Computed example of a mutant assay.
Amino acid sequence: MLLNIAICDDEDSSRKIMIEYIERILDIENYRISEYKSGEELLSNFPEVIDILLLDVQMGGLTGMQAAKEIRRFDTSVNIIFTTAFVDFMQEGYEVRAFRYLLKPIAYEDFKKHLLGCINSILESEKRHLAIKEIENGNIVRIPIDSILYVETESRYVLIHTDKKTYKSRMGISNIERELECTKFYRCHRCYLINLKKVEGMKQNSVLIKGEDIIVSRYKMKELRIQLTSILGEILC
């Protein structure tokens, strides 16, 4: 997994120290770092995906806490680690769901402990959620994998159907398939990716999921039956 790490701090020396720490902790091919000198710069150039945001609380202009509140309006999944010389912001940090606080000057062992803890949390979460960027409002949302019924292509977009709503994204269906490769999903057609656990029955050339007929390619029907047998413990005819 490639980690996208952003550092926002108005002190050059602080950003440099954190980058040096990251270089000591992680292999260079496993992460990508972006730097920002202010909350305004961060919000104006916010990357499409950030896994971890190291955010200074006290900066000139827009504070880190104010920036975090704005970020939470459109990105509920990024893990925020605040860096600060004071502990007066704990309650506000709770409001924006901060992952941790690091007190300045930041000690290497403390940084390593919290960074690795954050990464482990992300890896565990990735097993249970699919992160996408919605077309409608540009928000990044994390969809519980178990809630996904099926995914279908619609022109240049994909529709992700869940138990409660349908999400629309530019994320390709092949990319979603790769994200879900270790789960119980199956590409039954070039336009459909189905959750095998949600299949209610089979017809000659389709499966039934929550009352919807999903087309199955003829040459994939046999393999699909085998997949369903392993999931459901019986052959659906």
Rank of each mutant, 00 (worst) to 15 (best):
M1V: 08
A6Y: 05
E11F: 13
M18W: 09
Y21K: 00
I22Q: 01
I25H: 05
I28G: 14
E29C: 07
N30L: 11
N30A: 12
N30M: 11
I33K: 06
S34F: 01
K37W: 08
K37N: 11
E40F: 08
L42W: 04
L55T: 10
D56W: 06
M59P: 03
G60P: 11
A67D: 00
A68D: 09
E70R: 00
R72T: 03
S77R: 12
S77L: 14
V78H: 04
N79P: 11
T83P: 12
T84D: 06
F86C: 08
F86V: 08
V87G: 12
E95W: 05
R97W: 02
R100A: 03
L103C: 10
I106D: 09
A107W: 14
Y108N: 03
H114E: 10
L116T: 11
N120D: 02
S121H: 11
S121F: 11
E126G: 11
E126S: 13
K127R: 13
H129L: 12
H129I: 15
I135K: 04
N139R: 14
V141Q: 05
R142W: 08
P144L: 09
D146P: 07
D146R: 14
V151S: 00
T153W: 09
V158W: 03
I160C: 08
H161E: 13
H161I: 08
S169R: 11
I173S: 07
E177W: 05
C182Y: 15
T183V: 14
Y186E: 06
R187L: 01
R187I: 02
H189W: 05
I194A: 09
L196V: 01
K197D: 10
K197I: 08
G201F: 07
M202T: 03
K203D: 15
S206V: 12
V207S: 00
V207F: 00
E212M: 10
E212C: 11
E212R: 09
S217R: 08
K222C: 11
L224W: 07
I226L: 10
I231S: 04
